[in-house]
Nucleic acid binder design. Structure first.
Lengths: 123, 123
DNA sequence: CTACGTGTTCGCCTCGCATCGAACAGTCTA
DNA sequence: TAGACTGTTCGATGCGAGGCGAACACGTAG
């Protein structure tokens, strides 16, 4: 029964549901940014123009399914906006709105490139 | 494994191991602050004087074991410093050091009290 | 139409996290 | 010394997050 008739629910090419940063809890925002993959996505997105990058164009070590999930998390955290452009889906970082809701957070994330693994000249 | 009948492992009243904020990765800091319980701890701690609050004096809905775990996480994230004072353990928020490592983050967390789930008197 | 490319959803699996109760080690008090 | 109190560690548990492959839908190119 695992197969046979799938019944075709198929809520597929539905327009992406967005959440405004102002409706996002602090915990949600922090959790969204505490994942390395999502952090990479946000940073790459920040280094590009709005609507320039498609979902599949990011250099992250996960497959399509996981990638799609991460984009959904970023949407739910009010961090990105997505739009369908033909067969592709293009993205935009919500700089202004997110900054207004969580002042300094995005800047902090974009500034801090690496940390914690550095040299430790200490005894 | 590594169990059975250990004679006296008991690394108990060992002095708390601290991690300096400068050795903390951004992901670690964000993950530490993305938990509601830890967020409450940090906020309560921020509202008190240094070394004023003991571990058991916080108003959080978890038992001792979980509480101890959360304090360990906060230590590992460079957010707090602990010191033994008799039978109790007293805490201090590492405001300055953490602020230096992650400018604006602690302030943001302390400023934003609630969000996302609250009433929305707008519209 | 057929084939391909893009991205979402589903089912499944694996980990890690948060939590608890219990046991234990200290400290302070009676 | 006995007992109360504080906090850590252990072991087990429940649950959610993150990962993958497969199937599917939609758009585009041939």
């Amino acid at each position: 029964m695992t197969k046979g008739n799938v019944a075709a629910p198929a809520p597929h090419r539905t327009p992406p549901e967005h959440v405004h940063p102002r409706d996002v809890a602090l915990e949600t925002a922090l959790a969204a940014l505490s994942d390395p993959v999502r952090l990479a996505l946000v940073r790459e997105l920040a280094a590009a123009e709005d609507w320039e990058r498609t979902c599949g164009s990011f250099d992250v070590p996960v497959r399509k399914a996981a990638l799609s999930h991460h984009f959904a998390v970023l949407r739910s955290a009010g961090l990105i906006e997505q739009r369908d452009a033909g067969a592709k889906r293009i993205n935009r970082l919500r700089r202004a709105e997110f900054e207004e809701r969580f002042p300094g957070l995005l800047a902090l994330v974009l500034r801090q490139q690496e940390a914690g693994g550095g040299p430790r000249p200490r005894g």
